[in-house]
Design a protein around this nucleic acid. Structure first.
Lengths: 240, 240
DNA sequence: TCAATAATTAATCTCGAGATTTCAATATAG
DNA sequence: CTATATTGAAATCTCGAGATTAATTATTGA
C-alpha cells in the first residue's frame, strides 16, 4: 500500500497506479481535501463517503486513517473523522517550520549534491518555467499542472539532502501549505513575480551559494504566508 | 480515537484510558515494537496478531495503520505490514534532525516561556531526578519509569515553543530514538553521567541562557548517538 | 544440476451486518 | 423563557466470511 523503503519513507509511490482500493480512495480523498471540496473542520461521515467513493465502509475507514498520517484528517475515538482545521496561526507555524527544515535541507543538498542532482534540478526548473509561462495565458486548467511542477521543484532542491526525516517532514508541511496556497490564489490571483523568485533560487543553488539560496528560499516561503494573512479573517470560519 | 485539537495535534491522549479497541491494540502494539518484542524488519501478520491481541482482523489492521503514522510500521500494498527497520544511518539522521528541531524549540521556549512553563519544568526535572536516583539502585524494573520521566522532561523543555508542528515532529523522533536507546542501554548500561547532563541543561534553561542550553541539548542528544555507533554492526541485521 | 513453470498454501484485501455510542430533537420542570 | 432530562435516529466501531493476490513448494525440461 505504501513504499516500504526506509523508516520515514512512508510516501506513496505517486508514479504508478494505486495497487489497492484503500490507496485509490486515499488518493482521491486527499486531492478533494486539499482542493477544499470538503471544508476544514467538516465532518467526514463514513456512511456517506463509502457510497461517494464506491468502496466498503472498512476500506474507507482505512483510507481516512492514512490521511491522519498526513495530518489532513483528525480522528477522535467514537466520534468519527473530521477534515483538519485551518487557521492563520497554523499557517504561520507551517511556514516558519518549513523555513527551518527546507533551508537546512537545501544547505545539505548544496554541500553534497552531485551531478545527477544538478541535472534533475535543472530538469525540474525547466518544467516549472514552462508551467509558469502557461499560467500567464490560461487561468484555471493549468493551475494543477503548475502545482505539481512547483512541488517537484521544491523537492528537487533538497533531494540531495542527507536527511530522510527532514525530507519526510518537508513533504507533510508542503502538502499542508498547499491548502493555504489554494485559498490564497483563489482570492488574490498573483501579485508578485513568483517566477523571478524561483529563478533567483535556482541560480543561487546551482552557484552553490548556500547562504544566498537559503535566504531567498526563506523569503519565498514567507511571502506566501503574507498573502494568506491578507485574507479576510472570516475566511477561516470552520464548518461543522 | 485521537485528540482532535489542532492540525498537528495527532497525539493520543495518553492520560485517559483508550476509548476504543483500535486504540487499545495500538498502544499495546506500539509498546511491544519499541521494546523490541517484534524485531526491526519483522513481518507483522494480521492473522496471527489478531489472536495475540484478541481483536478482529479489521481492528488490528487499523491499529497497524495508526502505527504507520508514527513510522514504527511500514505498509506495502498487497504485501502486508512490517516493523520499521533500524540502521546506524537512520539513527544518525534521527539524532541530527532532533538537534535541529529541539534546539529551535528550546530557544522559543526560553524566549516565550511563562511562569507556568517554568513550574512544570521544575516538576518534570524533579521527577526525573528521583527516577535517576532509583536507577542507580535497581536495574530493570525502574527503566520504564525512567523512560517516562525522561520523555516528560524533554517535552517540558519545549512545551512553551510556539510551534505545534515542531513539537509534533519532535514527539515522533523522540519515540523513534527510544528504540535505539533501548538496545544501547541493554548492551552497555550507562557509562556517562546522564543526570549531570540533565542538570546542566535544566540550569541553563531556567537561567534563560538559550545559547548554552541549546549547546548542552545538542551534545546530550549526540552522545546517545555515539553509544549506538559503538554497538557491533551485526546488531542491525534485520529479521525476515 | 540448474532454471523455468505450474500447483499449492498462506495471507491480505474487501465487504456487509450487528452491537454500542454519540448526537439532536422533543418534552418537561423550574 | 431557560435549563435539564428523555427519547429517537444516525453514525461509529467491531466482527467474521468470501474473493483476490502474493509467496512457497513441487514438477518438468534442458
Amino acid at each position: 500500500m505504501r513504499d516500504q523503503h526506509a523508516s520515514p519513507g512512508i510516501d506513496i509511490d505517486q508514479t504508478q497506479e494505486p495497487k489497492t482500493l484503500v490507496e485509490a480512495a486515499y488518493l482521491r480523498l486527499r486531492r478533494d481535501i486539499i482542493e477544499g471540496i470538503y471544508a476544514p473542520g467538516e465532518k467526514l461521515r463514513v456512511e456517506h463517503l463509502k457510497d461517494q467513493y464506491e468502496v466498503g465502509a472498512g476500506t474507507l475507514r482505512e483510507a481516512l486513517l492514512l490521511l491522519v498520517t498526513d495530518a489532513l484528517v483528525v480522528a477522535q475515538g467514537q466520534r468519527g473523522f473530521r477534515v483538519a482545521p485551518i487557521s492563520i496561526a497554523d499557517c504561520e507555524d507551517i511556514s516558519h517550520t518549513r523555513v527551518l527544515l527546507e533551508t537546512e535541507a537545501l544547505r545539505q543538498s548544496i554541500a553534497r549534491g552531485d551531478d545527477a542532482w544538478e541535472a534533475a534540478l535543472v530538469a525540474a526548473f525547466h518544467r516549472l518555467t514552462r508551467a509558469e509561462q502557461k499560467l500567464c495565458d490560461n487561468d484555471d486548467s493549468t493551475t494543477e499542472e503548475w502545482e505539481k511542477c512547483n512541488r517537484a521543484f521544491h523537492e528537487a532542491l533538497i533531494a540531495a539532502s542527507t536527511s530522510r526525516w527532514i525530507r519526510h517532514f518537508q513533504q507533510i508541511l508542503y502538502q499542508q501549505s498547499e491548502r493555504y496556497r489554494r485559498v490564497s490564489l483563489f482570492r488574490q490571483p498573483i501579485t508578485r513575480d513568483i517566477h523571478a523568485e524561483h529563478h533567483a533560487l535556482f541560480d543561487a543553488t546551482l552557484a552553490r551559494d548556500a547562504a544566498r539560496a537559503s535566504s531567498i528560499l526563506s523569503e519565498h516561503i514567507l511571502r506566501t504566508l503574507d498573502a494568506v494573512k491578507r485574507l479576510p479573517v472570516d475566511f477561516f470560519s470552520q464548518r461543522a
